[in-house]
Design a protein around this nucleic acid. Structure first.
Ligand SMILES: [Mn+2]
Ligand SMILES: [Mn+2]
Ligand SMILES: [Zn+2]
Ligand SMILES: [Zn+2]
Lengths: 143, 143
DNA sequence: ATTACACTTGCAACTCTATTGCGTTTGAGT
DNA sequence: ACTCAAACGCAATAGAGTTGCAAGTGTAAT
């Protein structure tokens, strides 16, 4: 119970300090994302919020607003659906990690323990400006 | 002129040896993809084929068929639109390369000269099954 | 060259994700 | 409590992609 109160207050503070109004829809949305280990689609967030009867346009707008304020991140993992996750503000790390999505079952994993490096032979200057890495393939469940 | 004939025949042969019928729509589609340095969206392919007045459903179906037959590859680069490119059959290489897409202007590059390696510390077994790598960021044109 | 039929196509209707316009409601500073 | 920009619900809209079905065509066999 205390946990719930904390989660509620954490969400409210997060939203307020981003310069947004702490509406029930936004608090609920952020709590849902906070409780997930992998990024969620708009549909998944909406489903979690169905008992609150929040309009889908509102959910979209709130997710977009929170992205604009750098509270959450929007990723496109290759199945033509946006996914959203909270940006963890670690001490010094930039909190940017590759995502893996299974082309068979669609399961998504945050690969926080993985880092990619370019081979020394490459001269491509594009590499300096990469902001997001998406890896697609077959997960362990899908042979 | 000889060039055109060769391209036409190359496309026909490619389609036929894949076990598909060499229809005008398919030949034209494959020629369009063959003439592009980066993967094209369905809309871009359709535009190139506008003078032939080929239905968009037909273009989608042909692209899908060619993907199923491993003649072309379908990639999702993060803007929720699929892109298609010819699979080059090099002697021994698997012809799989990362793609870069600019989050500002949407330009796409095939990064054939780039290779990614995982750091030795990572133990993630997912890494063994990766089939596609997508890199997103800011291109050189977009500061 | 003709035939036969499975494969392809065009068309329209449809699904799904996401966006937008607008009138109404509400959060939060005063 | 009052005020009003911010946020909301609702409905219409846009765009990518899919599907059912009747009509048309490529290809192999005659
Ligand atoms: Mn993540
Ligand atoms: Mn490519
Ligand atoms: Zn899987
Ligand atoms: Zn750019």
């Amino acid at each position: 119970m205390n946990q719930k109160v904390n989660s509620q207050e954490w969400a409210r503070e997060k939203i307020r300090s981003a310069g947004l109004r702490a509406t029930p829809a936004r608090i609920a949305t952020l709590k849902v994302l906070h409780g997930s280990e992998s990024p969620l689609t708009h549909a998944e967030v909406s489903d979690e919020l169905q008992n609150l009867e929040i309009d889908k346009a509102t959910v979209f707008r709130n997710l977009t607003d929170l992205v604009a304020k750098n509270v959450i991140r929007r990723s496109a993992l290759g199945d033509n659906v946006w996914r959203f996750e909270i940006i963890k503000e670690s001490a010094h790390k930039p909190d940017s990690h590759p995502h893996f999505i299974c082309v068979d079952c669609g399961s998504v994993s945050c690969m926080e323990d993985v880092e990619l490096k370019r081979t020394s032979t490459s001269k491509s200057p594009l590499f300096e400006r990469i902001t997001e890495i998406v890896l697609r393939g077959h997960c362990n469940e899908c042979a």
